[in-house]
Design a binder for these strands. Structure first.
Lengths: 304, 304
DNA sequence: AACCCTGCTGCAAATTTAGCAGAGGGCAGC
DNA sequence: GCTGCCCTCTGCTAAATTTGCAGCAGGGTT
């Protein structure tokens, strides 16, 4: 839509903190971009950016304005989605922040099944930690957050959550394989492949270890669950995951999963959330309920 | 603001139902307006107007879009108001639908007192009935509605209400003057000066009269409370008003007010309302609480 | 059939916008 | 203190967009 161009421009500047760099990414010259900003500021009667020697920063008025602008763009997307829905096209886009665990099998499976029915819907899913999930929702860069033990926030509304016990992953020939439960202290004696500190799983582990005066030393650390998993095949390492990560096909060839003793680590919550009070686009709302379906099926499967 | 121009144009077309007539009121040619509409429709991928031989009408997609557009414009006004507020300017605009009763003394008094403190705030107050109040709120053409016995609606949120008994107004030398209460049947024998059927007062009268098998014949009928009041001076007519209409200075020289018997007509509610869930501009929100102050003072004065 | 209104389209003028080159200013490293 | 660097901002010209006039096709009314 034409009339949102200015808002997109301003949003880009606010995000990059520099008119020149924003202009590059927008494929226009800084001149044009600069003038559009000046025009908006004149219309508004107030500068929305503070000019610093190394770029620009939002002023207080700018903070108000950018919030409005993002809301506008989000609303436009919603209306377009609704309109597309009228003609039965089922088009739209869903953007999400997800924990690394969901990237392995669960989310890809959901997306491909969803797209089988609705080929007009596109997706972006980027990996984020428990705080990043919140900020992505708040600044409209994600419609949905799907993470483990999200940072609590009033600005966020949890749509659905299920408890997930943390499991230890290892090669089938690992000395600890075959046990039915594991204590955290047993794990600390092996090299560990841990998710990044921003991830919910790592957060839970850190808190629990600190309470027991253990230090978990990360031999390998990554945002990518797949990468961590691959490490187990070549070394007697331990990794940690929640069950959703290896649903529905199991942890994979030659890997086994053992839950951590419940006394060491109470089950955390796998959460689906959105910005509080926001109207989601039709596509996002539908996919959210699709996720919820998947989660509840997961819960039932676990209960049986 | 530049980027809302298109939305304003489309809103104008939707309201007038004709591109040419809208173009006139917008001071541009129909060519330009027509092309902008076509551009928006192309961007959107769907026509938002149905072309009829005598003009245009919103399509279903257009209904969705116009709702979005009006929301956008309202949000922009709110943000501008907030930004103006940052610099302590106290500028802004408040638009209202009001019952005719409020136009006599109460609202003018409030506005002038408010503007004494905040000269940067401007007002539009147009007269509307109990249904018009609702639709003006819903289509964003008014920030606040201030009417007697508004049409109930889920889309509307009542901010404040006080009970108001209906009074009969007449010249001081009228045969009925001096009584402490009046029955509706007594009134029916005199020529009546009634507000328009859309007004809350008229609605209450009609309902009550119908229940008692009376018919109230309007000799004079008008939207203007002032006009109705003037009629009483020259003829032995009766008019009907609620107390707020002649607060704080009384019904005026040579006019007296007698309440209608409570059995004939239970007290109705004078209501201040806004669109449910809408964020009002700073100016509108402040003036709303100013009205509420005024109303509560009225209530206390009546109680004493 | 004549007339009125409607939305829509070709074409030229007018306005707006984009891009280039450069001015001016603050910061980092030497 | 100086030089280079990166930042925003400004004249000026060229390109792109938008506007308005005149006129067309189509439906409704007299």
């Amino acid at each position: 839509m034409r009339h949102l161009q200015q808002l997109r421009y301003i949003d880009a500047v606010a995000r990059t903190g520099s008119i020149r760099r924003a202009a590059e990414s927008l494929a226009i010259t800084s001149t044009a971009l600069n003038r559009r900003i000046l025009a908006v500021e004149e219309d508004l009667g107030t500068p929305i950016f503070e000019r610093l020697p190394n770029g620009v920063r939002l002023s207080v008025a700018g903070e108000l304005f950018i919030q409005y602008a993002r809301q506008q763009m989000s609303d436009m997307a919603r209306v377009q989605s609704q309109i597309a829905d009228l003609s039965g096209e089922r088009r739209g886009h869903v953007s999400m922040v997800c924990g690394q665990a969901m990237m392995l099998q669960f989310l890809p499976g959901l997306v491909s099944r969803y797209r089988a029915d609705h080929p007009g819907v596109s997706f972006t899913a980027f990996i984020g930690g428990r705080q990043q999930a919140v900020s992505a929702l708040v600044d409209f860069s994600a419609d949905l957050a799907f993470v483990y033990e999200m940072e609590p926030s009033n600005a966020v509304q949890v749509l659905y959550e299920i408890p997930q016990r943390l499991h230890v992953l290892m090669a089938s020939d690992h000395p600890l394989a075959g046990k039915t439960q594991l204590r955290l202290s047993e794990c600390a004696e092996y090299p560990l492949a841990l998710p990044s500190p921003r991830a919910g799983i790592r957060h839970c582990l850190t808190v629990a270890a600190a309470q027991r005066s253990l230090t978990l030393h990360a031999t390998v650390e990554s945002d990518s669950a797949d990468f961590l998993l691959k490490c187990l095949r070549t070394e007697p390492m331990l990794a940690f995951q929640i069950p959703v990560a290896f649903a529905p096909d199991g942890p994979g060839e030659g890997i086994c999963a053992v839950p951590i003793h419940a006394n060491d680590l109470p089950p955390g919550m796998l959460q689906l959330a959105q910005q509080r009070g926001r109207h989601l686009s039709v596509a996002a709302a539908r996919f959210a309920s699709f996720i919820m379906d998947g989660l509840s099926r997961l819960e039932e499967a676990h209960d049986t």
